[in-house]
Design a protein around this nucleic acid. Structure first.
Lengths: 343, 343
DNA sequence: CTGAAAGCGCTTACAG
DNA sequence: CTGAAAGCGCTTACAG
């Protein structure tokens, strides 16, 4: 394990300068600071108390902290189960808050004795994750996908399952299918829209952008979705909502407004954990296992830290599962006409 | 801020011995170690990296980690909102795992640069919280109550609201009311049972222990509850479930088995966050605000740490609210007979 | 079981 | 902007 002295020797500067570089002292020259920080990343420097190394792992939010959502809760749950096997401690960080002026992310992590980070982001803050990766700091993003080859991520691709979900509706006889999308355009929600489009295309149905409603990924988003659906001319007979809480809220709101689910309206939701079993009727849903994502991220980070060189990339795409439960059925029109569908 | 040198002087030993005491060196004499650790607690010692102090706060589980539950998710959410205002970092700990053999809790906290802990416990591990408090380490327990005057806690007492809830059922005309209790006998669940008994007593109804069903505070607990209810001779017409997930699961399971809620069965649940709005019909429930508990705990800890002496006690009992929604109604018998209740 | 001394790790006036 | 030196914080053989 390198000390400031070791890093100093490698960078060709004094230990004093290395210390100043870590602690973001304003007098350190730009090139020198960059060289020192990049060496620290490369050599996996961590500060010590006396001679004891500090070894923390961060669960860091690039954007607003969303602990409290089922996805984040399940992620934390998964990570905490992995902690048992490893010797690390888990630190929750708000990246926007902890960064000092003119400080790089690596500096901040090193300052806090953090040797690796699981990153949580939205589409707006992907740049933050890319910067952290570019600095060479061991990190894994959960729940977002990147084209940038430097960024490590564990991601569940829901496009195929979303296509299956919408095809399930088409096969039941639905022709007008609305989709409820998160207002924030994260990769995962765009996958789900893409799967929706795939299904329509495969069945020669034309895509109508008026059927795509963007709502917040919250309870009131789901409620808003149903209110907007209700005033649509020639109302859709089925919907696919891409957020768990919004989906459940939509189902409840539909029922509150007198629609029977699935009799009058078929609903497919999304599930990170176990919400689909907590609705009546049980919610047909595209399901990802956020707990598993958390565990995989922790394990990946563990091996990234263990490796001396930071050459290996972890870009793991997990699958999702489409599960048919009870919130989907033949549309009312067909049921009344007694038509049977052959598809 | 005291250093090992300062602590050594105060304890009348050498800095070497202080260091050995922190790091749980087996050769340190029992009395000496206890004296040193207690001085560290009293004087709020924290280790330093060079001359920089480490200041972490722990969210520590005395028992199994239950991140992932709505209560824990909401707690974390509340704490994370407080982090913005304070300069601390939050560390998630599994107390059973991080403790080295023969090490006290204070030693472990100090070793990790933690200067205060929010403790999460169950009835089985209350002793752990008492020991931490007795050691003098700044800590606040969330979600449990203690008679021990040394233990700081933030607790929501649901006894009165539970009584109101059950009286609401009695006033509707219910006479046979079952209660679904957590198999783990935590203070909060016992409050709810007590509130149930209070309500019965106030209306001259006798308590029947066969109506108290203990089930796990999980989905399958709620399902199990309904199955057990169904085979009871002279089945109860109303139930009170003291856990959020079990309550929702019970409601769904009842509906799956053909009971109409509230027509055939009235259900009152418990809510930590927003689950009551995610069921159809909306769930009448006793509600606590776990987010607020998290925020209050963080703020209390902050002031405990700031104070030089650890004489102040924080034993705050918050309230809960009983909210009538749509899962409760007049029992079927009375409805059929057209009887109106005057109470 | 404990201390004096050596010594590592890191930081900070001080000097240039 | 940087280094040599001083120095604090903590730990660890070594000695008793």
């Amino acid at each position: 394990m390198p000390s400031v002295r070791d890093i100093a020797r490698m960078a060709g500067v004094s230990p004093a300068t290395v210390s100043r570089a870590i602690n973001n002292h304003p007098t350190v020259g730009k090139e020198v600071r960059e060289k020192v920080i990049s060496l620290m990343n490369e050599k996996r420097y961590v500060p010590s108390v006396g001679r004891r190394q500090i070894t923390n792992i961060a669960f860091a939010y690039a954007d607003d902290i969303s602990l409290g959502s089922p996805f984040d809760a399940a992620l934390m749950h998964g990570m905490s189960e992995c902690m048992e096997r490893f010797e690390f401690d888990l630190m929750v960080l708000d990246l926007k808050r902890v960064l000092q002026p003119h400080e790089t992310y690596s500096q901040m992590f090193i300052r806090k004795g953090i040797c690796g980070a699981v990153l949580r982001t939205s589409s707006q803050s992907k740049k933050v994750c890319e910067r952290i990766a570019a600095e060479g700091f061991p990190s894994v993003v959960v729940g977002e996908r990147f084209d940038n080859p430097l960024v490590n991520f564990i991601y569940a691709d829901s496009r195929r399952s979303s296509r299956e979900a919408v095809e399930h509706l088409i096969n039941l006889g639905h022709r007008k299918i609305a989709v409820g999308l998160n207002v924030v355009e994260d990769s995962d929600h765009l996958d789900r829209l893409q799967g929706y489009k795939d299904a329509l295309a495969a069945h020669q149905l034309s895509f109508d952008s008026r059927l795509v409603l963007q709502v917040p990924a919250r309870r009131d988003g789901g409620e808003q979705f149903i209110r907007r659906l209700e005033v649509m001319p020639d109302r859709p007979t089925a919907v696919y909502l891409t957020d768990p809480v919004a989906a459940v809220a939509a189902m409840v709101e539909a029922q509150r407004r007198g629609m029977r689910v699935p009799h009058d309206l078929s609903i497919i939701g999304f599930d990170d954990a176990q919400l689909r079993f907590l609705t009546f009727p049980r919610m047909t849903a595209v399901c990802q296992d956020a707990r598993e994502i958390g565990m995989a991220a922790f394990a990946a980070l563990q091996s990234l830290i263990a490796e001396a060189k930071s050459t290996r990339r972890v870009q793991r795409v997990l699958g999702t599962e489409f599960e048919v439960h009870e919130s989907t059925a033949v549309p009312p029109v067909l049921r009344h006409e007694g038509v049977s569908i052959a598809m």
